[in-house]
């Protein structure tokens, strides 16, 4: 279809380079009380490390997923990747262009329209006072993609049809659509400027399973059709298994395991990954007993010393309590765990 044909085929020399490289990415938030309170109450500054030393890459046409409990830093990483918030450390390189290097301003602007984001709550991310067709048309107008209003209307119609909506519904407002339909509008909008890379932050978490199936199928169809690359965020492991080629597991702001999807589900290595997999309810009624994960996520303002997972870990030893494990390669996976490194598990 006409809207989607302008993406140039990758050059042969570029084919081997990952589309997205995330290097040593970190973000610290200042969560101190206002300075006057700190002064009068004698309080220190409080810093929250939402993400630290996050490194991964995504190849073209691949889906890379981030999983982890609430507060583990998934959305923070996603927002840094699309440039919604600035990293404290590290950098994001997209198609060879560093997103934090000021010298590449022109390249960066060109790249912006090749990157789009879809959020969890389709209602909050759509302007409630715009009609669906204006929401989808906005990027076409903003980036000057359509030459005339007639052209815009035509492309909006095609985009709505592409995501399974009736173009005649374009005159409705967001509140007149169901949750699944709103997420389709958000996807149509994201597709409007021929992106190559789409970051999806919990795109189906607010939806029913039956609607979720429609959206996940749609996302995979679009990927096949237009060669899209996804960074896909979810806390639902079954959804991630269905969508991802490779998976990164986050815990307290750090990637504790990165592995190909099949390998991770067949042979999880990090104790936290094992716990997460054990905690998934057994829908196949195999009789497997689900083991609740012990304890809760520690406060990120005051993380435990050593391995951040050690207070909940059944394999923790003295070294785990004092020394932060560094990433090691084992099989196809990168894991941060002393027990794995020492061959104890």
């Amino acid at each position: 279809m006409s809207v989607m044909t302008s993406a140039a085929p990758p050059l042969a020399s570029e084919a081997a380079r990952p589309l997205v490289e995330v290097k040593n990415l970190g973000r610290v938030f200042d969560v101190s009380k206002p300075w006057l309170n700190r002064l009068t109450e004698g309080l220190p500054r409080r810093l929250l490390t939402a993400a630290a030393e996050v490194t991964f890459s995504i190849n073209k046409r691949e889906t890379f997923a981030l999983v982890g409990e609430s507060g583990s830093g998934k959305s923070t990483v996603a927002k840094m990747v699309v440039g919604l918030i600035a990293p404290t450390t590290g950098e994001v390189i997209i198609d060879g262009v560093s997103m934090s290097d000021r010298r590449h301003d022109a390249d960066r602007r060109r790249l912006r329209r090749r990157i789009q984001m879809v959020f969890q709550d389709p209602y909050a991310s759509l302007n409630p006072r715009w009609r669906a067709l204006d929401i989808v048309a906005e990027p076409l107008r903003a980036f000057g993609i359509a030459q005339s209003e007639a052209e815009t209307a035509k492309q909006v119609g095609e985009l709505l049809r592409l995501v399974g909506l009736d173009p005649a519904d374009g005159t409705k407002y967001p509140h007149e659509f169901s949750g699944g339909q709103r997420q389709r509008i958000a996807i149509a909008r994201a597709l409007a400027c021929n992106p190559e890379f789409i970051v999806c932050d919990e795109p189906t978490s607010a939806l029913d399973v039956s609607v979720q199936a429609q959206i996940l199928n749609l996302m995979r169809d679009l990927q096949d059709r237009f060669g899209l690359t996804y960074l896909f965020i979810s806390h639902n492991l079954a959804v991630v298994r269905h969508m991802a080629n490779r998976i990164g597991v986050m815990y307290l702001g750090r990637l504790v395991e990165v592995a190909p999807a099949r390998e991770m589900f067949a042979k999880p290595k990090h104790p936290y990954t094992r716990m997460l997999l054990d905690a998934v309810p057994d829908l196949d009624l195999t009789g497997r007993k689900r083991k609740p994960v012990e304890g809760e996520v520690p406060n990120p303002v005051d993380p435990p010393p050593g391995c951040p997972f050690h207070p909940r870990c059944p394999f923790a030893n003295e070294r785990c309590r004092v020394e932060m494990p560094q990433p090691i390669l084992t099989g196809g996976a990168t894991v941060r765990c002393h027990a794995v490194e020492e061959g104890r598990i």
Partner: peptide, 21 residues
């Protein structure tokens, strides 16, 4: 409804989809 739930135990290319809403 049961077919639309992604499974941890096996791969599937497409989830069962109930058309409409």
């Amino acid at each position: 409804l049961m077919g639309s739930i992604p499974s941890l135990a096996h791969d599937s290319d497409r989830l069962v989809q109930i058309p409409g809403s």
